[in-house]
Amino acid sequence: MIYLLNAFSLLLEIAFDLLATLFVLRLLAEAGRADFRNPVSQFVYRYTNPVLAPVRRVLPNWRRINLAALLVCYLVMLVKRLVLFALLGTMPHVAGLLVLALADLLDFVLVFYLVLVFGWSLLSMFQVSPYHPVMGLVEAIVDPLLRPLRGKLVVGMLDFSPAVVMIILLLARILIAAPLFDWGEHLARGF
């Protein structure tokens, strides 16, 4: 029975993470000023706008940050944690649940950026058209992270700025997200 529960929880996590990916893409594409004419951007906009339009009436953007998309991502992570705890038959303390959802969101965004930076750096080694829709969107999302280091870590013909950004993202997971998870677990148990 435990194996079936583990398989079901894995499928639930994948479903919630796919939903969160859509809203994180919307959040980061708007923050990076991705080209709206891009077909991938239009897909993301089309499927997130029915949820975000009513929330944006109450919670407008702050600078280039779509606070409505951020709130929806947080709520997706909160519901995911609540469902996973319900599968285990336990109910955590509310404060622990809120902190765990925040830790989930932070870790998710860090891993998302890590995958995008790695994929972008890998694709940049091949002759991929810069006009490809996916490449354009990834470039718009990754560029704000790479811009401060671009051109400063070049050795020969190699730019090591993506490697440094990936190391910083991994360190952020270890030094920020992991302690937040520990604190959330501690609060969820009620100690």
Rank of each mutant, 00 (worst) to 15 (best):
Q127L: 00
P144C: 14
I167N: 10
R150T: 14
Q127W: 07
P133E: 07
L175C: 10
M166Q: 14
V154N: 06
G136I: 03
S121P: 07
R150C: 10
L145F: 07
G151D: 14
M125H: 08
D143V: 07
K152T: 10
F126A: 07
G119N: 04
S161A: 12
V138M: 00
L158R: 14
L169W: 05
Y131M: 01
V142I: 08
F126P: 01
I174M: 10
Y131R: 06
H132Y: 08
G156C: 11
F160Y: 15
L149W: 05
Q127V: 00
V128A: 00
L158H: 15
L170N: 09
L149Q: 06
P162N: 14
I168K: 05
S121L: 07
V165T: 06
G156E: 12
M125N: 08
L153A: 14
M157E: 15
M166C: 13
A163P: 07
L146Q: 10
F160W: 12
V128T: 02
M125Q: 12
M125K: 08
V142Q: 02
I167V: 15
A163N: 10
I141S: 01
L123W: 05
A140R: 09
A177Q: 01
S124V: 00
P144D: 11
V155Y: 13
I141Q: 00
P148C: 09
P130A: 02
P162T: 10
A178C: 05
V165P: 01
L145C: 06
F126S: 00
L137R: 03
V138P: 05
V165Q: 00
L146M: 14
W120I: 05
A178V: 11
V142M: 02
P148T: 04
P133K: 03
L145M: 05
L153M: 13
D143T: 15
L175F: 15
R150M: 11
Q127T: 01
M135A: 03
W120E: 03
L122Q: 10
F126N: 01
F126K: 06
S121A: 11
R173I: 03
A172I: 12
L145A: 05
V164M: 10
Q127D: 03
M135K: 08
I174E: 02
A178G: 05
P179E: 11
D159H: 13
P144M: 13
L170E: 12
M125R: 14
Q127F: 01
P130D: 04
A140N: 02
